[in-house]
Simulated scan of single mutants.
Amino acid sequence: MDIAISKAWESQALALPNPAVGALILDSNNAIIALESHKVFGGAHAELAALKTAFINLSGDTKINEIINPFEIYDYLVKNHNGYFYHTKIFVTLEPCAHSGKTPSCARLLSILKPSEVIISHKDINKPASGGIDILKSSSIKVTYGILENKGRDLLFPFLCMCEKSSFILYKIAQRLNGSFENGIISSKDSMIYSHKMRSIANNIIISQKTILTDNPLLDSRLVCGNAPNVIAIGRENRLEKNLNIFKANREVVFANNIDKIALNGFNICEGGANFFEFIKDRVDCLLVFLSPNMQKGRNFFSDFNGRILQTQSIGRDIALWIKRD
């Protein structure tokens, strides 16, 4: 389960407003034959992606590799499973979904494929999707749940924010080992690609007007050829000119002098330095710190903030820290 949870963190926030989920499948010899995560909203859920990979490893049938549409993958597995999954065990970080929407029901698929056991970390709190455990049990599949439940709940934190208040506000920071955050590029290419993946699905980037005027950033997702999110520029008065880079993309740019008066729905990414963080930190749900393994003279990131690390992961040469307000 710990492996499945770690896999899910590799795609954290990228499937919003859906939760991050990981799935791992063992064969009859307890060898790992599939390990997948839910990578994008509307794409295959972790269970479906893992079942697809496991099917190839168990059957040798690679035709399913050509299928991308989740409903078509579902249908192919139903028609061709031939009992391959009867002696498998499936570990999933979240209760398999009971309903069918943009993607098919994972619980109903599992009830057809009939693995010997499904092991779950955390129950689904989203009522429209919950009920998967009951479907599995009614098909005589052994179900165990509550495994590493606290870690499973930490994984769900961005999704839980979306459920509770219709928004998730992430402050992204890049800094060096000694805390300096100025003077040139800090993060590795891998960290920047991850950031651009998040930008491509974010509703807004929130940034100080001072940073826009000083750095004239693009604030797009060019590294993944994705969409450019809307921009909310915070400052005392609007001094943004139309020749700035942020106006070159097809998006909305909004000026605001008081962040507290803005309804921040959906997924919002805050970018900036220490002064901007001090200004906006009371609205922030989570920090994502990209820590680069080098040091350089310069101003350090400063602020009063008490948090708890939800996850630590390697991204390229960097360490990424997901930190929840304590």
Results as ranks from 00 to 15, higher is better:
V289E: 09
E241A: 12
E252I: 06
N294M: 09
L110E: 01
I232R: 06
S180F: 09
L113F: 10
S28P: 03
W9S: 09
N150S: 15
L244K: 05
W322H: 13
W322E: 12
L240W: 07
D282I: 04
L160Q: 12
I120F: 07
I205M: 02
A98V: 05
H87E: 15
G101I: 02
T88V: 04
F276T: 02
A31M: 11
P17V: 04
S180V: 09
I133P: 04
E66I: 04
K151W: 11
E66R: 13
P128T: 06
K142M: 06
D215T: 03
K7Q: 15
T312P: 04
A13E: 14
A4S: 14
L51N: 09
V231D: 01
T214V: 12
K114P: 03
F41K: 15
N250C: 13
N57H: 13
P293T: 01
N69K: 10
I193H: 08
S138Q: 15
D318R: 00
F168Q: 05
S138H: 13
C161K: 13
I206C: 04
D260M: 12
N243E: 15
E117V: 02
D2W: 08
V92N: 06
D75V: 01
L16T: 00
A174V: 09
E278I: 08
A13D: 14
A46W: 07
K123S: 10
C270Y: 12
I186N: 07
D124G: 03
Y76H: 08
H45F: 13
F71M: 06
N216E: 11
K324W: 05
N204W: 07
K142S: 08
A13W: 08
L113K: 00
T211P: 00
K89M: 03
F168A: 04
G272C: 05
P217M: 07
C270P: 06
P96A: 05
G179W: 10
